[in-house]
Design a binder for these strands. Sequence first.
DNA 1: GTCTATATTCCGATAGAC
DNA 2: GTCTATCGGAATATAGAC
Lengths: 185, 185
Amino acid sequence: MTTKEQILRIGDELIRDKGINAFSFTDISGKLGIKNASVHYHFATKDALVLAVINRHIEKVTQLRERNAAKDPTFQLQAFISTYAVVKKENKICLVGSLASDLNTVNKTIRKKLTELADLILDWVTEILETGKSTGVFHFNTKTRTKALLVITAMLASVQLSRLTGDTDFKRIKESIIQELTTTL
Amino acid sequence: MTTKEQILRIGDELIRDKGINAFSFTDISGKLGIKNASVHYHFATKDALVLAVINRHIEKVTQLRERNAAKDPTFQLQAFISTYAVVKKENKICLVGSLASDLNTVNKTIRKKLTELADLILDWVTEILETGKSTGVFHFNTKTRTKALLVITAMLASVQLSRLTGDTDFKRIKESIIQELTTTL
DNA sequence: GTCTATATTCCGATAGAC
DNA sequence: GTCTATCGGAATATAGAC
């Protein structure tokens, strides 16, 4: 992996571990055994790095969506939920939740790019639920987009809240989502 | 209101507006027209202030719970949800969500106090749902505590996520929670 | 591409006058 | 209780050598 890629990866982890306002370029350079100034060579400003991290997530979500497009809705939903299980195992939170929490401290460009990511995820989950409902796999009466919001909020917040109420709560929430969707009304 | 109370109120707002790592004592003193050092007179350290803010919330939630204890479950749930509607109108996020996001940057004492608040809220909502179910007002098959977690995560995350997907999404999520709970299975 | 060195700014916190 | 003044530290960022 190139230094630039490693900086991206570590930056991503730090944002989701401590938040955008609690990590520094020195944190990154320290983990790589290089100096502060070298990080600035690859990303001129902190904002540029954050923007690149968001773009990295947009690419990953897009790939995950496309790779599973032909699978059945339950499998696709599991694929979506699994990404949060990874986050939980790392004792971190998701990028959207981290940056949305700090939204009033970031510039317009980052805000816009993050909105792009959030819309992408919402669109994807809405599509999964829509397909699942029309094929009779999922059952719900709420408007599909709103149901997708409920699924996403449950995952986004459970990685945060289960830090306090107990890590096993993440699993309970995760399983109840599938349970409720697949139970006949 | 005393200076100390005003510092508490402004500190509370700043934590929920920008996060614990993006506000300073100077932000607070500036809003009060006093100096940095004066804030330190009332709260020796930033940690002491944060701790007091959490305690303030514990008191408020306790009071809200007790004040509505005799009301019917639907009313009580509305009371709970209304607190997030206030937060949303301020364009802020809830204290638990803000501090849970930054949890890896705070000390053990704050962590423990925040856990106390989270448990209090979870206990309250679980009780509301339990009463509602036994009196036939609410309908759900998921374990009561887990359902409470789903309600709380929906509110906690919707104030964050609707900053990106659209503020009206908060209302949609809020109403669908009541809708789903009161719909016969 | 990475380094040293540094400019600048801000933060948390404290000492001591009033 | 609030002030001025200040210390020590850390952060973002840049200039210029290698």
